[in-house]
Nucleic acid binder design. Structure first.
Lengths: 388, 388
DNA sequence: TTTAGCAGTCTAAGTGTTTGAGTGCTAAAA
DNA sequence: TTTTAGCACTCAAACACTTAGACTGCTAAA
């Protein structure tokens, strides 16, 4: 009965041809030297990782021997597996179980695979379409990015916005609504628009609001958060002459609005996707992980900590993650570049037994795609006519 | 060992004095006649519901006999419980277990309790503060409402926006950004502001944009979705004279924006809260329920279906819900009124064994509080100075 | 160096037993 | 008539025990 578990995919060994030279050297400096592995060992290791990713259960020698790519007998495979285990690539949950990839095993798999998977044309089109369609204003990028990541990979999606300490308003606009109410519109670089409803304790005329527009555009455009000083406010007040009282509340709101950029932020979407994986069928463990999504600081730290400068996909497997509730999960993310600035990151969290091929490819494209969309107009709003 | 399970709260019987006359008649017309219940039966039933809500396990006669409110012996309690079971208020998971409230039992409890719980002062203040602070623009009301509901009750929060078929723009505003780019700002009644980035295939001057502002304000304010007709567009085009080409894309965006109001929408927050309840420790069941949150239509139907006209809290216990994956859960929600229009609903979903006292009180206040905030300016934006 | 065969290990599943919480019933007490 | 004490009964949960079978590692032959 148990042997049926892998029966569905007798050809589930990695599709590619003979393993080429590995992609670069291993990133995380454990000095992993995959030259130590014979071709046959590599083949077996990959087959094990593949099978385990697909079925989630330990992989035995008998099953492997049925793989057309592997030509030797179960006994030989057992010998090889014993050596792989000794070398740290495999683990055995218990004596009479098959083997499971260790974190080092996954790492080998990921490193040797990272540069040569390509998604299907359909997937690419779908993804690009979604990026174009959904992501047009910075405001919602995080939301949509995490949602896309979740829906395209079937793991929990995360999207991260770092601190952006020195934003400044490109242009102010005010709309008079009534005696005590008007609308304050701030345009930021990159197409972000923030709108605030202002309700005053005193009356203003449309003319005052018009002059306020001038004053703000003269004195407060290009001004970053910590450049809002008393002298500047006084200047604006002088400009407003008798209506100087309006400057103070407005500058306060401006300050608060700019402060919103100064916090890093993290969106998580598709937590429920994890429910389908038996790894998280232990409610306690699931709760721990989800608890971490709630106090997002930890995850933020985890992402910000791994600030290696390269632009590549980051894959942190199990205990490679600093946070210990993630020691049974994998975090994959990639930074989003806009020109040469990092404006965020997007990725997924899932079981160590993650479909790395797909995830890496998807997150790679997603991050690049978002970067492209966001960069489209660096000083002008991006987007086609179908915006919001 | 098992007797310890209720040991923590020997006084967990309902705090109130002798049960008063029940609040109104039972809503759902099964003709439940609680005059059939003696005072003692009521007391026992309440104690059972209370204990079960707190500890989540069947309640036995011995435990009840320790309740200072209940003066008779376990044997008598057993007799009473047997009768309550016969009358349908209690159920027995198996012969040698204690009793658990049936749905009818919960219903009795809810109906007899619904009018006389009051939250602590601290809770009320906290809730009001949060409503004031967080909810100022219609755009984010759903998000925040579901989040508040979840965080104040510790169950999954939901917030619902019905179709609003006949909204119209109060005022248009355009901001010129560059040769091909400008910003379209639409003010809707109730303080909702929608901003769209427009990127044109041709060039425009600031003057064109200014005239467009006039044209739109003349012809398209107060116009509902299905009133955008060709004749109206032609009129606006005539007004724009040589720059008439701009009218078509703008009116299309207007139409699309107004259509956004014409869909009902549902936000769910705090799904993970359910993890803490043993009722959902069965991953399969949890998955079913969460699956329903994903295809929100069902839940929308469930809420829209229960369209009884009263303004009271709606409590749907177990199979009272139309959707069958919810047959083990309770849905509590209340509609949000703005003046005399229903603008949404807010509520929670949790186990049948829900802390009804707290939930009912909280949702009641939350819905009213949101209604108040939203109503503040019916034709003007609401909110104090600290908006967004 | 590879392979077949075999003994050994260990989990998962199934079975039987025990424990105790809780009931319903009966007969005595109030 | 109502309440209570006592007792026999039931059943789920916990535990111990057995069995089946999926693997392995080892050995000796190919």
């Amino acid at each position: 009965m148990k042997s049926r578990r892998f029966g569905l995919s007798s050809g589930s060994c990695i599709a590619g041809s003979v393993a080429e030279v590995m992609a670069g050297t291993a990133e995380r400096g454990n000095g992993m030297d995959d030259d130590r592995l014979s071709e046959r060992k590599k083949k077996i290791l990959r087959a094990i990782v593949d099978a385990h990713i697909t079925y989630g259960e330990p992989v035995g020698s008998k099953y492997l021997s049925e793989d057309p790519q592997i030509t030797c007998s179960p006994a030989t495979i057992r010998n090889e597996m014993a050596e792989l285990e000794e070398m740290g690539y495999l683990e055995q949950p218990h004596t009479s179980a098959g083997r499971v990839p260790s974190e080092l095993g996954y790492r080998f798999y990921v490193d040797s695979l990272i540069e040569r998977y390509s998604a299907t044309k359909h997937e690419i089109d779908d993804l690009n379409l979604n990026i174009k369609f959904k992501l047009t204003e910075m405001d919602h990028i995080l939301d949509e990015a995490s949602r896309l990541a979740a829906s395209f990979t079937n793991y929990t999606g995360i999207a991260f916005k770092p601190k952006m300490p020195s934003v400044s308003v490109m242009k102010f606009e005010f709309v008079y609504l009534g005696e005590r109410d008007f609308l304050m519109i701030m345009l930021f670089p990159g197409g972000t628009v923030k709108t605030k409803n202002i309700h005053l304790g005193f009356r203003v005329t449309p003319e005052t609001v018009r002059r306020l527009t001038d004053a703000m555009n003269i004195y407060f455009t290009g001004v970053t958060e910590n450049m809002i000083t008393m002298p500047l406010i006084v200047k604006a007040e002088e400009y407003m002459e008798t209506e100087s009282a309006i400057v103070h509340p407005i500058s306060k709101i401006l300050y608060e609005t700019m402060k919103e950029f100064d916090n890093s932020d993290l969106k998580v979407d598709g937590v429920n996707k994890l429910l389908q994986y038996p790894e998280y069928s232990d409610i306690g463990r699931l709760r721990d992980l989800i608890g971490m999504f709630e106090q997002k600081d930890k995850l933020l730290d985890a992402i910000e900590a791994h600030d290696n400068s390269d632009d590549e996909i980051n894959v942190y497997i199990g205990s490679e993650n600093a946070v210990d509730v993630m020691s049974n999960s994998t975090l994959v993310f990639k930074k989003i570049r806009k020109g040469n600035r990092i404006v965020g990151a997007v990725g997924v969290i899932g079981p160590k037994r993650m479909d790395y091929k797909k995830v890496i490819s998807m997150i790679d494209r997603l991050a690049s795609g978002i970067g492209d969309v966001v960069s489209e107009g660096d000083s002008l709003p991006p987007g086609k006519n179908d915006t919001k």
